[in-house]
Design a binder for these strands. Structure first.
Lengths: 201, 201
DNA sequence: ACACATCTGGACCGATCGGTAGTAAAGTCG
DNA sequence: CGACTTTACTACCGATCGGTCCAGATGTGT
């Protein structure tokens, strides 16, 4: 699914487009959209501006691709969690995954979805909108999964799937901020434990 | 404590320094430190760059003063919550206050402390550090208050004040992100209800 | 060998960044 | 009325912003 597109004509690309995107993702993750300059990006990617523009379009499109890569990589715990057998396990897997990803020693602390573009600056509005949509979509998917849990009976009929989903999402966002504050995985896992105490039995 | 310093000599200032700071705070709140340019600021404040520099120093110092004003104004619910009689009431007042401030119709959605400078950009590092310190300090104060609650007996002896404080802070940060996502006060108050279900009895 | 298509590197673009200098204006003092 | 102090406004600073252009390099197909 990644670098399968072959270049037949013309001078071949001299850099690994996948690794370059990985580097760009890390920079956006750490510094946010507004805080990242083209120079930051090309330095990290090890290519020049022209190569970046030829390969990715522009800063905004590069950001979109970085977000997509983030969703399929570091944030893939989210979709994986949805496949857990019960709602309770979904919720726990979701939060544990958030802790793990936001505190990984090999990546920036925190969550790209949160610190990428929370604020609403002038030129960062498209990036902002991308992340808002994604965050909302993640909540919707969680809600749908919990609705299914009610149908399947592993959540009681008087449980509110939307409310539970929003609570889990809120906790995950809070974890992301705390991770950016420097809290470690053990402390954050305690927070997950506490949050799950309120889970309906 | 605010505009009590009187100018005796020289040309009097033609703008209200308090209101100018209020405007600057709102801009930083909405756009974050990196996303706010001097032009954004001076436009909102209705003054020129020179006046801004004469009155506030530079962008970074203006940000610090804006944060201070935010802490004493919109975020004053935090210190007010600490004065509630019981730990449970402290927690609830803290979270309800967060909901109210992050969803106020007269102010940007979300929390300046969170979207002001979550990411770690190059030139935004001082702003970032200011907010990290503040967020950590708020948690520490909450923890100290809960420790007192254990001493006073309104929290059981086996309750962990630090853990509870971190959980409440995490929920508050999550609420801030959700507010920036567009969730309203009613929805967020439901989240507070859910979070407080886990409160030790 | 040749045309062709693509990529690379660096010079360069206008606009904007945060910040400063110099001068005119507007007050309070004697 | 000056002398003095502070502010306001305009013009301007070098640096950097995101983005473009173009000549040269490097591959493919014939």
């Amino acid at each position: 699914m990644s670098g399968s597109q072959r270049t037949v004509f013309g001078r071949p690309r001299e850099f690994d487009i996948d690794e370059a995107l990985e580097r760009a993702m890390q920079v956006f993750w750490a510094r946010g959209y507004d805080g990242t300059s083209l120079t930051d990006l090309t330095d990290a990617m090890g290519i020049t501006k022209s190569s970046m523009y030829a390969a990715f379009g522009n800063k905004e499109q590069l950001f979109r691709k970085a977000v997509q890569r983030y969703a399929e990589g570091p944030a893939s715990y989210a979709t994986r969690a949805l496949r857990e057998p019960t709602a309770r396990e979904v919720a726990e897997a979701f939060l544990r995954g958030a802790v793990q990803t936001t505190t990984s020693p090999n990546a920036p602390a925190g969550c790209l979805s949160v610190q990428g573009a929370l604020a609403l600056s002038e030129q960062g509005r498209p990036a902002h909108d991308v992340l808002v949509d994604w965050r909302i979509d993640a909540g919707d998917q969680l809600e749908a999964r919990f609705r299914r849990a009610v149908e399947e009976g592993d959540l009681s009929g008087d449980a509110d799937p939307g409310r539970l989903a929003r609570f889990i999402m809120t906790t995950a966002f809070g974890i992301a901020v705390q991770a950016a504050n420097g809290l470690g995985p053990d402390t954050l896992d305690e927070i997950v434990d506490t949050a799950l105490l309120s889970w309906p039995t």
